[in-house]
Amino acid sequence: MRARNLSVEAGRRAALPWPAGVGRALLWTAGGALLLAFPYAAEALGWHFYLSVATKAAVLALAASGLNLVLGYGGLVSFGHATYYGLGAYTVAVLAREGVQQAWAVWPAAVLLCAFAALCVGAVSLRTRGLYFIMITLAFAQMVYYGVISFKQYGGQDGLRAPRTDLGLPLTDAGLYYLTLLLLGACLVLLWRVVHSRFGRALQAARDNELRAAAVGFPVYPVQLCAFVLSGAITGLAGVLMAHHTQYVSPNMLGWPQSGHLMFMVILGGVGRFWGGVLGAVALVLLEEVFHSATVHWQLFVGLVLLAVALFASRGLSGLLEGRLR
């Protein structure tokens, strides 16, 4: 189904994100400047709300990019990524409840916990394929969800307050926005290097034809498991950021609708396209905010737009943009 000429495909993709001409360089500089100046503009115009929307979009872009690694590049449809997202957020809240608020302890603990959870889930789930893989990742996510809400001392169904961790300097909303951008950028660079490494080629080869990849000598299972762990860790980091953003964690962050939401962002943006996660997250957050402020029945319009994308833009928003830019 996904038979592609890998080397040609990879070559074309390699040219995409970095400036390949003066026009593109200008575009990147302008985009970067806009992102950096945004909190000041928002402050000056009294748009505090939009700063919050931008932070949320950036956090979800990080989560969706993490998911895109397994979903897009690995062809492994995880319907349980809310687990890592929620566990990352819950680590912040639970450790704060237990009196641990130093960022240097909380952040690595959260990311390591998510990586470990992904290791356990991946080790079992990766033995299945297709729809069975979707369902078994969902099953594990549901187990974690019900497990977490059974801890009444950590809020149960009601969720838990999550005070911001102590970074050694006061974390304002604008500061959190910059921190999120910084981590998003760092993770995107990491992901870029991963998907264009030998490891990334092996991952994509296994997606396109597992039997051939194995026959060529790629260790398919370890490669997929590593990708799954990395993906879980990145999505977990997004959860940590989201806990800092909302200062509250709810079991909904672990539920299957959250997993679905992350998945729809990736599909909307473009599965297996480098910018798919970012584009999809930003587009979905903006769509929801725009329609939400305009009408009570915003879900209807979000649904219609998603339907149009599914029917008429088979490669998602990235597909549309690439067609335009080339």
Binding site: F264, I267, L268, H297, G303, L306, L307, L311
Partner: peptide
Amino acid sequence: RVYPRDHLTQVLATFALILVFNEGARI
């Protein structure tokens, strides 16, 4: 329209239908 497409496109299209149906019922 989505038969020949991959599962993920079908998932997105039918998820969009859920939103439309839910909001339609609410209206």
